[in-house]
Design a protein around this nucleic acid. Sequence first.
DNA 1: TCAATCTAGCAATAATATTCCAAAATTCCC
DNA 2: GGGAATTTTGGAATATTATTGCTAGATTGA
Lengths: 160, 160
Amino acid sequence: MSGLRFDKIDIRILQELQQDSSLTNQELADRVGLSPSPCLRRVKALEESGIVDRQVMILKRSELGLKLTAYIQISMDRHTPDRFGVFEEQVNSFDEVRACNLVTGQNCDYLLEVVVEDMEMYHDFLLGKLTRIPGVSGVQSSFLLRSVKENTSLPLNHLM
Amino acid sequence: MSGLRFDKIDIRILQELQQDSSLTNQELADRVGLSPSPCLRRVKALEESGIVDRQVMILKRSELGLKLTAYIQISMDRHTPDRFGVFEEQVNSFDEVRACNLVTGQNCDYLLEVVVEDMEMYHDFLLGKLTRIPGVSGVQSSFLLRSVKENTSLPLNHLM
DNA sequence: TCAATCTAGCAATAATATTCCAAAATTCCC
DNA sequence: GGGAATTTTGGAATATTATTGCTAGATTGA
């Protein structure tokens, strides 16, 4: 937040686009109560400001036959730069891994979210890929039963 | 995956749009080796097929002053529909919560991802909102140190 | 209150998406 | 393996949407 200031309309625009970036400029302008040209100018200015990372299409797991989502806690044997470096490089190359985060806490070092077709594929992933990485000493899996909330939006209330 | 079949070009299109949905149809067509009109027809057909959930703009946490991401394991005192119903309704109303998933495992019932400005705000969230929900008996937080991989794309290799 | 600065909205222009149709490619059946 | 039916492609015409320039209006600061 490098000295940038957003007014209420900017925040409305960001909220709308966080929910649906396929909105036409016309439609967006209507929703935020502006005419198309100033609306587009604001969108461009927001993009210029560097707060936008990217714009993506989100697909439905279930429709693609990806029936198993796993959350994995991973512990490393040693906390050396080399161990971490190799692990992170490998994890980045696995398409099944949707998220990998280094976290605080005594239980584990990394939290992963992994998406696969079924338990058999998960088994293959664990034994064939994840536990093959040197230094991985502890692996604990939880499986998704039901998704309660899945939101790519960030809260913006604090900007007001 | 209701009997739908995708060929290599469809999958290329989906991979591109999962990475960047702001691509112009012209640019997308170039990347997948098609001329604009059949390319657009395929995109529309893919949307019609129901595998697309939505299209979103992803913002940068750091640029918005959201410096703290927490991963929370939550246990409920009793596993009754009422307990779960109330909890999920509340969680859905909290903007700080980006993800909430009911999972298997002995450690906890729900996994949450929460984004806030700083530790003080996190404290307020925990005490003022989360632990106020009836039935929440165990709360264990881990904090993001470094994001290694953050990917909204789903793997599509299995479709080939 | 007044002047300077910024923002909105209209209209013209440019870029892009969309549709139609004939040609090419593919698939399926014998 | 050959031929007909079906599907898919690519180019051109059209429609939609984004983009820009300019003037009027609003807001801010002294």
